[in-house]
Design a protein around this nucleic acid. Sequence first.
DNA 1: ACGCTATGTTACTGACCGGTAACGCCCTCG
DNA 2: CGAGGGCGTTACCGGTCAGTAACATAGCGT
Lengths: 214, 214
Amino acid sequence: MASRTINQPAVLPLPPPRERILAAARELFYRHGIRAVGVEAIAEAASTNKMTLYRHFGSKDELIAAYLTELAKEGDDIWDQLSQEHPGDPQAQIEGWVQYVERILTDCGERGCAIANAAVEMREFDHPARQIIDDYKMRKRNRLVALFREAGYAEPEQVADEVFLLFEGARISIQCCSSGPAVRVARMLRSLLAEHAPKAHTKSKMQKTSAKRS
Amino acid sequence: MASRTINQPAVLPLPPPRERILAAARELFYRHGIRAVGVEAIAEAASTNKMTLYRHFGSKDELIAAYLTELAKEGDDIWDQLSQEHPGDPQAQIEGWVQYVERILTDCGERGCAIANAAVEMREFDHPARQIIDDYKMRKRNRLVALFREAGYAEPEQVADEVFLLFEGARISIQCCSSGPAVRVARMLRSLLAEHAPKAHTKSKMQKTSAKRS
DNA sequence: ACGCTATGTTACTGACCGGTAACGCCCTCG
DNA sequence: CGAGGGCGTTACCGGTCAGTAACATAGCGT
């Protein structure tokens, strides 16, 4: 509404092409798979064309890398959000994470983790995607360990690994049998965490968010 | 050594082309991914050619389906083998399965479950592969439930789901961080099973194969 | 020896893919 | 106003893909 001509129908300005391309790639890569989607289709879905795509991303592989980098960034942000919502309360952060897991497995479609899927599709060991994927999953696992350690769990690595694998298993198996074990993973996580929960004498707050069984 | 001419150098007869093609497809699909491998490469790896391939499999999709059917068959056979090795002893069958899991995750490469990988790659909901994949994973889950029920576990579905997801998670995450949590899944399984193991008054034999912690 | 079937060989089609060249447009900034 | 940069458009390249046609060959049973 600033310096625009008045009677112009205000075509609601599109985001810049790079963002549109990345958004389109995200949608198509996730829905159909990386190898199954051509750059032309991405450009078209982004309301632009191949040339513009190649001006922003030197190659399809670069676009894939950017796509995964974006996904990884958002995945990492979850943890910061959690520690921001429940500062100094690791137990509440854990519960928040379980809710996040629950939400992801019910709301999001049946395509699982886009990053893990990319790991399946991009198998060339020297592909730039590999590093992004491996680093992301490792960070995620380490974040879990740190969280459980902070919350005073007796064996944080063990619990983190188990929780990690349960979640990963849920996200892959929802692609095979959508109404299978995956939808019950949140319940599993809660009872598992309750079993291994730290005893009361730890430093965690233990106010309202003590682990609950269903 | 029957009616073959004596001085003929006995070129060690190859298996029939169909088997060779299926074996080559298996190797290449698993190693590089289904979409990443062309039919020509498969024919060549099978020491034959595209024409012969298309005489046995009407299309690449049919070959994929045959590939997955074979894998599913072998996966199903595991259970029969287990119940054959430990007839009437479900607890021993469970332990045998855990050893099988252990073996798969250490011996086999870092490519995870070929069937789950196929589920990631073949996303067209009407692809013949989908049915094979979904059915297989469901059978597997149900086998686990049956086994735990037979062994007298109090909540066989819960335990089976948890075990199922742990295994699936291990097989997918070994493709992301190969020396990560996946390699410790057997230990997890054993302690998990020990925790939920049926009390002594069940019908299971409980001789030598009582659950052991490490 | 015959004929049938399975296989090998070569060449081809049409479609699609990733990637590029060349040109023209429009907007903005100076 | 002019210049330049971002963007759109079209056409194209070489390569690869799935799938097919036509023909040659080898093995086998009869």
